[in-house]
Design a protein around this nucleic acid. Sequence first.
DNA 1: CCTGGCCTGTAACGTGTGGTACATCTATGC
DNA 2: GCATAGATGTACCACACGTTACAGGCCAGG
Lengths: 296, 296
Amino acid sequence: MTGTLAAERPLRDEIFERMAELSPAERKVARTLLARYPAAGLESTTALAGAAGTSKPTVLRLLDRLGFGSYPEFQDRLRAEATRSMSPLSRAQAHRPAPPGTSSPGHSAFAHAVEQRARLVARLPDTVPPGEIERAVALLAGRPKHVVISGGYFSRLVARMLAMQLDQLIPNVDYADEPLGADVGKYLRAGRDSVAIVFDLRRHELAAKEVVSMAKARGASVILITDETLSPSADEADIVLPVALDGVPFDSFAALLVLAESLAEAVFHGAGEAAIERMADWERSVHIYRALHVRS
Amino acid sequence: MTGTLAAERPLRDEIFERMAELSPAERKVARTLLARYPAAGLESTTALAGAAGTSKPTVLRLLDRLGFGSYPEFQDRLRAEATRSMSPLSRAQAHRPAPPGTSSPGHSAFAHAVEQRARLVARLPDTVPPGEIERAVALLAGRPKHVVISGGYFSRLVARMLAMQLDQLIPNVDYADEPLGADVGKYLRAGRDSVAIVFDLRRHELAAKEVVSMAKARGASVILITDETLSPSADEADIVLPVALDGVPFDSFAALLVLAESLAEAVFHGAGEAAIERMADWERSVHIYRALHVRS
DNA sequence: CCTGGCCTGTAACGTGTGGTACATCTATGC
DNA sequence: GCATAGATGTACCACACGTTACAGGCCAGG
């Protein structure tokens, strides 16, 4: 494994600028290098020297002057640049449908499912009013004394995810797996400076309504994350974030997860310094956890 | 006018599509090639074989199957592509500086996060080779005796989600929250007809490698879900599903969740009648659960 | 239980590699 | 005009490379 530094300037630029200080034969090498970059440098010294019309030692002397210890080291650098330039980002090209012979039930169903979910995510900005998001972020980034999060039968997993992420950013984040059972204490903690985030999707659960009521009764602000049909708890909630779930044959949490993650990210930007500091602490703890439980 | 042929299709795409027709060891080479493209292929056969966890002849056999006469010929092709991708034309689209702290803290950060995640999801079909998905679906829909699923520190939540969804479709699905701890028994159950699904993302955990080894040792087929840099466990796994996570400042599970959900949906289509029946049973049980715990 | 085919890694071989020492050439100082 | 220092190419070496042949392993079909 190579321990390359991040974000280096393209080697091509440096060669270009330092042309002046090179010897004539070295310059010839530099020219062919620039003319056919980076391919020329990824061939052998023999090939490069040949293409430049000089000899192998000249190639090596050039690299020496550029600060490379060896030819392979130079090639490592070129390879790294090439990989970076061919990263998926710059690869925003057309899609190729599946080859004729290989039409399979597995793939097409999968592709269909993915596409469907991509649409759900794309629709997210249209289902969530921007103003609601702003208020939610302001609430969470405004140093609430306490945040408690819970979800329904399935959505609790996303709730827990959001809890873990927020916990990295702000203090006193509780996740209540059974808000009406063992974890009721986490809701009893709630007061005027608390924020409760409740997930209630589709087949809305009565439990959700009770949880929202409980939080409201104690003076907490309630953020409700629900589907487009709106949970019955929506009346009581202070902020309602609706998200699209519908799919055939199954509903999808894709947009829900994106909403949760993006909410956390916005809180990070809103909370500023404090969040960064807390993240550092958190980072350390995770390392400790890993050292203990995952065998160094 | 130079008599050059029309721009060839990137080799990467061809490898990606032809994954299915490769032998297991050849696939390992193809994976590392795709994960670090084109750098991995511009190194020596020894280095490439080493990175892939196989041997030099396997590398050559892969190239043979792809229609290359020799390793240098293959590298010529890669070099040509790299040169093309670093041409002044494609160099123009380089940088887009991110607005640091100026924008309105709530909405724009949120919108940016959502957009970023939408891109990750859109890229999913490009990161997961269709052949690998097909094989994974075939494995899971082919009535395995037993399926066990586990994840890492964060990814366990998605793992659990997948487990819950698969459990609705096929029998004998286990979720192992602590595969090396309390839940080790679920892995000890594994045998020749088992399928183990392991999540191992980014900062890959040693635990994942142990889990994969354990499953392989018992003869189970292993499906590894990892990020684009490929978990070290990728050598041992039978099927590797890479997914894009990278975001700024935080990684996102959006594409991961979509992969899991879509995999489940594809299994549903692949499993046919049996899955529908099982879903009906499951549905009844949930109603019972709700009646008991959620007050009708 | 054996037998064929297909994968796969090990071992060996000859060639091309990157690296170095040295001789030749060119330019500049006195 | 000669000595000097830098620049350049040739010759050579050890070695790592790409390649090929071969033997063991694995699984389906008889």
